[in-house]
Nucleic acid binder design. Sequence first.
DNA 1: ACAGTAACTGACCGATCGGACAGCTTTGAC
DNA 2: GTCAAAGCTGTCCGATCGGTCAGTTACTGT
Lengths: 184, 184
Amino acid sequence: MARPRAALRGQILNSALRLFAAHGFRATSLQDIASDAGCSKASLLYHFANKDAILTELLAPLRRRGSELRAELAPLTGEPLVRAAVTGFVDMALAFRYELTVLFHDLPGTTGHLAADPDHDLPLIASLAGRSDDPRDRAAAWLVLGGVAISAYAAPTTDAVLREELIRAALRALGHDPDRPPSS
Amino acid sequence: MARPRAALRGQILNSALRLFAAHGFRATSLQDIASDAGCSKASLLYHFANKDAILTELLAPLRRRGSELRAELAPLTGEPLVRAAVTGFVDMALAFRYELTVLFHDLPGTTGHLAADPDHDLPLIASLAGRSDDPRDRAAAWLVLGGVAISAYAAPTTDAVLREELIRAALRALGHDPDRPPSS
DNA sequence: ACAGTAACTGACCGATCGGACAGCTTTGAC
DNA sequence: GTCAAAGCTGTCCGATCGGTCAGTTACTGT
């Protein structure tokens, strides 16, 4: 019953992602993942060093996309920056909705204290706020960040309408007119 | 060392709220709470039937306020409804920021499936959307709901500026003009 | 002083979980 | 066919957790 390496490995990641998103990281045992993936718990630990390694590999694509987005936003300023940040983050949230669910649910050390470090504050927040230090712009940016993330997995659908309207609502919240495509 | 009943009980609730918000419900053991509250684990279970009972009592005020808000919004319609829903929810989120943190962090069965509970949270979504069934209004309502909740605990401050700007950003997201206090 | 009751505790228990390990089975190169 | 490596598993282990229970201490009414 020895499969090619990638097969079971991918199945484990699929099962883990679904179970982590549904019940949380801590609430999901290795046995739960193994049962869902159709293998033994020991087999999990053959493919992954430990439980955290599964989570790390699961969130790697999300982190990668986050880094890309950060790089894309770096040279921008003003309204084009905000628009790119909004569309980029909405698309990322929709593409990685389950991964975001896992992040929000069960990693207080990662998500809950994001803001506790004013210096290490999310670059994405800065971009959404148009690199403004005004607490009012920051508040709106936080609202958009959290709202989009929650909507991505809590809203019943993920079709094009949701994407479009999330972008529009986010731009309105940030004080930008959604119906003015070119720059200001 | 027998204190009046309310003393240690309140201390336990204080410790539990802080620890649950900081590390999550599951990640906080009864021993953690007992140590923080300055008593034994057995003493916890003298005052509370079990771990869930602590959580239930901890979230009771939040639930009560939610019911009140729902009742207040019931007779309203149109723009006054949306304004009342926004201000009511922002104030509730700021007043119960730690409780909301607990809810968001570690209760996928409660928070992750908010949308699956038509009785409890859909009324608030409906109110924020002005009782519209348009998916676009619903999307904006979801963004506001999640964004305010996240902002309440993730934003570094909870002063009047944050409150005011959360309300304004939420109203903008929902397509209403924050600078027009009277009804439409 | 004494009894009764409320508050509190140390010690213990069963269940569960993450992980280690030795060994079995399949695959593929020669 | 041979054999080494890769894939996989059953079983065991230590740690931790929620919860129980018998017993102790402190308070209060009489």
